[in-house]
């Protein structure tokens, strides 16, 4: 157990080092930082002095070490475009994205898992077939088209829900939450639905195919032959093994949700991290891009780590193979 964990931790550190190296190369060599910071009228000597004082003439290794140290201590530098500290910009935007992501993940799981189980058990029923057609649409219709459609129907035609921004948020310290007022909850509904639909279809399709595979295994056939009642068979024996991969799905999905929130946030002008990242790409704001990259990678590494550890707890096979020392 301890060996497994330390191995995974080491891997995570390796990934973060690789990503931070990429971010450093991006920050240091894509465009000239000095040219971005000063105007045309600054003399070459002044530029050189600035370059020296910022340590841009130091050996690359020293610069990289400093870059990593700064990141670890939370010194993220300043945006080229707004001149604000990046740490503050991201902290300001993070709650919006996390709340949006959490609600869409909830939607995708609460609807997706039962629908997946249902379609696996009733393979040729009318409802199952219609659900499958709906998932095909969910996978094929791009998130932004779903968003535009929802805006047109519920925002423009019916006028029921707001289609722009977060509404009235309540500040709890630095965390501005949208869960506490009716206005902000109404604003949350359409974006969360837009983001959730695609994930929902993914959950459903994966649960369905996992369940189908499990139902074909020998132990299920054997249990059927023994005459165990269908309900126990499906929900005790089959479902348990189906849900092991589902844990991974949830982990991966949260990553997907964070990534696709870029699109949703753009459609609804939702003031989250995705919109910040998109703006940084549009205006070639390299420092913001590289910090976003590191933070997102960190988020993903942590999620993957948690998923792996959960696997260890849930699936006895993983436990056995690690004890045997083969991996």
């Amino acid at each position: 157990m301890l060996r497994f964990i330390s191995r995974r931790l080491l891997q995570s550190v390796f990934v973060m080092l690789a990503v931070s190296l990429l971010a450093f190369v991006l920050f240091r060599f894509v465009g000239d930082p000095i040219a971005q910071m000063v105007g045309q009228e600054t003399s070459i000597e002044d530029q050189e002095r600035l370059r020296d004082s910022m340590g841009l003439n130091d050996p690359v290794i020293t610069q990289y070490t400093r870059f990593v140290t700064n990141l670890v201590t939370g010194e993220f530098g300043y945006s080229y475009r707004t001149r604000q500290p990046i740490g503050e910009m991201i902290l300001d935007r993070m709650p919006a994205t996390l709340e949006l992501g959490a609600v869409s993940l909830l939607i995708s799981l609460i609807v997706g898992i039962p629908a997946g189980i249902y379609t696996a058990l009733r393979r040729d029923g009318f409802i199952a077939n219609s659900l499958l057609i709906v998932t095909l649409i969910g996978v094929s219709v791009p998130t932004f088209v779903i968003g535009i459609f929802l805006i047109y129907v519920f925002g423009v035609q019916l006028g029921w829900l707001p289609t722009f921004g977060r509404g009235d948020v309540v500040a709890l310290g630095w965390w501005k939450t949208g869960f506490l007022t009716l206005d902000s909850l109404r604003s949350l509904l359409l974006p969360a639905l837009t983001l959730g639909i695609y994930q929902l279809t993914l959950t459903m399709r994966l649960v369905r195919s996992e369940m189908q595979e499990v139902l074909k295994t020998d132990y299920i056939k054997f249990a059927t032959a023994r005459g165990i009642n269908k309900r126990t068979l499906h929900f005790n024996h089959a479902l348990r093994n189906t849900l092991v991969p589902v844990v991974t799905i949830i982990g991966l999905q949260f990553g997907g949700i964070i990534a696709f929130s870029i699109v949703t946030e753009s459609v609804y002008q939702w003031p989250g991290m995705g919109l910040l990242f998109l703006d940084s790409i549009r205006y070639v704001d390299i420092p913001v891009m590289s910090v976003y990259l590191v933070l997102i990678a960190l988020m993903f590494v942590i999620i993957n780590l948690i998923v792996d550890l959960l696997y260890f707890v849930i699936d006895p096979r993983v436990r056995l193979s690690s004890r045997g020392g083969s991996h």
């Binding site: 990534a259 870029i262 699109v263 990242f277 790409i281 997102i296």
Partner: peptide, 18 residues
């Protein structure tokens, strides 16, 4: 571990910078 859309956006952004 990074979704495709994120990678694509990032490379697109780097290309814009270079």
């Amino acid at each position: 571990s990074l979704p495709a859309i994120l990678t694509a956006l990032l490379i697109d952004g780097i290309a814009r910078g270079i």
